[in-house]
Write a protein that binds this DNA or RNA. Structure first.
Lengths: 186, 186
DNA sequence: CCCCTTCGATCGATCGATCGATCGGGCCTG
DNA sequence: CAGGCCCGATCGATCGATCGATCGAAGGGG
């Protein structure tokens, strides 16, 4: 593993555990096994590091969402399973993306927000199409999207692979709950 | 409005917008219209202020949850409506409770975690009772509780009273989605 | 084979700024 | 003139970031 990767992993862990502002440069350096000076040989500013983590994670999600095809219901189920799996397998990365957006400033913030919006488009389209095809019954598709995304993203805040729930079961349960809450025809 | 209340309101707003570690004592003082020295005439440490905000908010939620009665489904619907209403009407307080737990240390953390656990008990009981009475159909009641709570708490992260959705409609929609995702008999 | 240069990697020391918190004293009011 | 309210000044600590210096490995000319 390269030093850059070690820095990145340490940053992901600490940002997720203590938050961006709660993590100091010296904490980061110690966790990566470097001096704080050497740290800057491998990264830009602390905010650069945060942006990189978020961009990578969001780009990966978008890439997976783009590969999803099928009818309205299939797409929604696939989105939910993919999203839940990602949040369970990489809880730290996704928690940083979901929780540290406010630490970004200026253009960097806009870039990441744009990526997030692009990702959420897939969800909105899937829900809208499902409603149009009368396969889903929701009062307000936008509210449904927000509620569904919050529910699925929350996985990163509590799921542990060491716990009693298998990941494969988790994705199935979430898919079922998603269809239920969107009033899918049974 | 007393000065203490002004300090508290400023703290809630800033903690919610920038996070606990992202908010400085001087930011707090300026937002409350005081010097940083005077601030300490009205509060203890910064962490004391955070604990107070969380304790008040959680105690209020628990108080409301205790007043809820009815059969299994009624209680669950009431919990959802109450929770969503609280998160929509006081998005900053609830966002701080949900998002800044990690900023607490030692005993203070344990106290707040205990309050949160006590509140979540109401949800777990309502779901468990609903399953026992065969009015709900969920694969794993604990997973269902976590998913439902994340969905409902997320409201504080996006809802705006200035937006197109009325609060009374919102609570009804969330109640319907909750029943749907828990497989309530239709 | 040996010396000399070059370069990436690393660090101790330190920068100016800001952090949370405190102190002594001034100002107003009863 | 006593006491609540308030603040400028300042504390030691820590913040994010940068500095010059040092190290060992790689490379090339004699």
């Amino acid at each position: 593993m390269t030093t850059e990767e070690r820095v990145r992993e340490a940053a992901v862990r600490l940002f997720a555990e203590r938050g961006f502002h709660g993590t100091g440069i010296r904490d980061l350096a110690q966790a990566a096994g470097l001096s704080s000076a050497t740290l800057y040989h491998y990264m830009g500013t602390k905010e650069d590091l945060l942006v990189e983590i978020m961009r990578t994670s969001l780009t990966e999600l978008i890439g997976k969402a783009e590969q999803i095809t099928g009818d309205e219901t299939d797409r929604l189920v696939s989105l939910v399973k993919m999203h839940v799996r990602a949040h369970a397998e990489k809880p730290r990365e996704t928690a940083v993306v979901d929780g540290e957006m406010r630490a970004l400033t200026g253009e960097r913030r806009e870039e990441i927000v744009a990526l997030r919006d692009r990702y959420e488009r897939f969800w909105q389209d899937a829900i809208d199409d499902g409603v149009k095809a009368r396969k889903l019954t929701v009062a307000d598709p936008s509210v449904a999207r927000l509620a569904l995304l919050e529910m699925c993203s929350g996985v990163s805040r509590w799921y542990s692979p060491a716990g009693p729930v298998k990941l494969s079961d988790l994705t199935i349960q979430y898919a079922a709950m998603a269809l239920g809450m969107l009033g899918a025809a049974r």
